[in-house]
Design a protein around this nucleic acid. Structure first.
Lengths: 139, 139
DNA sequence: GTTCCTGCAAAAGCTTTGCAGAAGA
DNA sequence: TCTTCTGCAAAGCTTTTGCAGGAAC
């Protein structure tokens, strides 16, 4: 299923999650800004339209969305929790220069070593760190 | 080179890092406890022998060791920074039940997609989350 | 004697919690 | 009306910083 705002809204409805104005705005933001934003980014962007919005509500909403399985928490670096509306497995590259996060497809299932064969694996994360092509060009 | 206490001590000496009693004890702890401890774990274990040891010193020492390239910071989950004396690339599996971290060998270089070919990659981390074989057995 | 290290206390940053008022059904 | 949500303020954690005393050379 495609990750449209309408589809996700429908999914929440089916899970009996009440859809307040704030929650819908945050969900919409995540759909439109697939840059794995931090709470701070979501807050400062949405505050322009909703001056009374509080960070507490953002935290509450993100926790709710995570519980509902609609967003994934990605811990790319210490102290900055980021949220990803795309819950499919994919890799993340963080550029040390511009700070941007790049998604890339990667399927590591064939590489899982024998010693983990008896383990139950819930999530598989791949995280690279370096300098992106654009920043290399500029330098 | 093998990761022995003596080798690492020598490496620090060559880098002109002064080797205080506290620093050597922390380094020794990391060599002997390859479980990717948090600052809290290092602190509570070492405090038994060194009652005056402060967390500040542990933070300072770990930052120094990281700068010197002797330990790697691994951010497995939000809010718990862990330290790894083994700086070679390898995967980490965290068991949700017992909390232990398991290392496993994995070489993802062959899977790096074309779209990252122009990027400069400094570090490659693989992190799995799930339930380990032992906890599955018990349950 | 000079330099650097240690460790207490305070500060800083992110996230959670308590709670009263507001919104929604 | 009754339940749930919002958002302020305060608390909780981890990590960093300021600084005075102390260790090492």
């Amino acid at each position: 299923m495609k990750l449209t705002f309408e589809n996700l809204k429908q999914e929440l409805k089916e899970k009996n999650v009440s859809l307040s104005h704030q929650r819908l705005k945050i969900l919409e933001y995540l759909v439109q800004n697939r840059c794995h934003p931090t709470v701070e980014q979501i807050y400062s962007d949405l505050q322009k339209d909703m001056p009374t919005l509080s960070k507490t509500t953002i935290y509450n909403t993100l926790r709710m969305l995570e519980k509902a399985g609609l967003v994934k928490v990605i811990t790319i670096e210490d102290k900055e929790t980021r949220y990803d509306i795309d819950t499919k497995d994919h890799g993340h590259f963080k550029c040390e220069s511009c700070g941007n996060i790049f998604d890339f497809p990667i399927d590591i299932d064939p590489l899982i070593p024998e010693e983990l064969s008896e383990f139950k694996i819930f999530s598989k994360d791949v995280y690279f760190n370096g300098i992106c092509a654009r920043c290399l060009d500029i330098a």
